[in-house]
């Protein structure tokens, strides 16, 4: 009986089959209503997909409230146009890993991972960027953090406690493309010691919190930063140390084009 259901499930997934197995978020109980906290449902989805050899986790139109989720080997999150991952405005729903700063999407030592947007089906042959959205609700998250620190319940600095939207460390084969990334409580995207990273087609808008840097990376090898728009309160791009093979082109802010990143 169970096998029957399982094969059905696989058949449903296979309908969308491209190179990798596709999974729809609703199968795991993720709710698109904007009020259900989906952290454990999304995490379970990632765990199952990774343990079955990897695949794409598809989110369609809707707002998916979540705290920290840990991306695992061979899993790509696809945010279709209109799909928004919404960061929960609560200090204790964010975590990092030893040596990895807190983030909404965190990965450490994983390979072949991604968070990507997808072109809407009714728009063809157009160079669309910034589709799916990650909305950090930085102001509210930061308020929660500051309150908890002020009360003495949270024994961290504001910087330690404030999650990035994406925090990857020691990962290989990373794709973060075609998304709109909005209002982080900390920096927006951080890479540390990662290899072969593609960062393209991002609309990054994070100005509610002072000093929110757009893209922060260190010790990376093979970083491609292309066609991104930055509207941030901190530095659009901040590279701290020792990165190799960094390519960049066509990155912009409200003030104009960004000069190429050296290093």
């Amino acid at each position: 009986m169970k096998k029957f259901f399982f094969s059905f499930f696989v058949a449903i997934c296979a309908l969308n089959l491209s190179a990798q197995t596709d999974y729809k978020a609703s199968v795991f109980g993720c709710m698109s209503d904007g009020i259900t906290l989906n952290t454990q449902s999304i995490q379970t989805a990632i765990n199952i997909i990774s343990s079955r050899g990897g695949g794409m986790l598809h989110f369609y139109v809707g707002r998916y409230l979540t705290g920290t989720i840990f991306l695992k080997n061979n899993v790509t999150i696809v945010l279709h146009e209109g799909a928004t991952l919404v960061g929960v405005p609560s200090a204790y729903d964010y975590a990092g890993l030893p040596g990895v700063p807190k983030g909404l999407i965190v990965a450490h030592g994983q390979s072949n991972i991604g968070v990507v947007g997808s072109t809407p089906e009714y728009q063809t042959n157009m160079d669309v960027i910034g589709n799916g959205i990650i909305e950090g609700q930085g102001k509210s998250v930061r308020k929660s953090i500051e309150t908890q620190i002020a009360k003495g319940y949270l024994n961290e600095t504001i910087e330690q406690a404030s999650p990035a939207l994406i925090s990857f460390s020691e990962c290989t084969g990373v794709k973060v493309t075609g998304l709109m990334l909005r209002e982080a409580a900390g920096d927006v995207v951080t890479y540390n010691d990662c290899k072969n990273v593609e960062t393209a087609g991002l609309l990054i808008e994070s100005k509610d919190i002072a000093g929110s840097n757009g893209l922060v990376f260190s010790k990376c090898t093979g970083l491609n930063v292309t066609n991104n728009f930055f509207n941030v309160s901190g530095k659009p791009i901040k590279s701290s140390a020792n990165s190799k093979e960094v390519k960049s082109s066509d990155n912009r802010t409200f003030a104009g084009s960004l000069s190429k990143i050296t290093k």
């Binding site: 698109s32 209503d33 904007g34 009020i35 139109v61 809707g62 707002r63 146009e81 209109g82 799909a83 928004t84 809407p120 960027i129 910034g130 589709n131 959205i133 709109m180 609309l203 728009f229």
Partner: peptide, 11 residues
């Protein structure tokens, strides 16, 4: 609002 409309057609 519940089921907020999707942010689309950017930039």
């Amino acid at each position: 609002y519940p089921y907020e409309g999707p942010v689309e057609d950017n930039p």
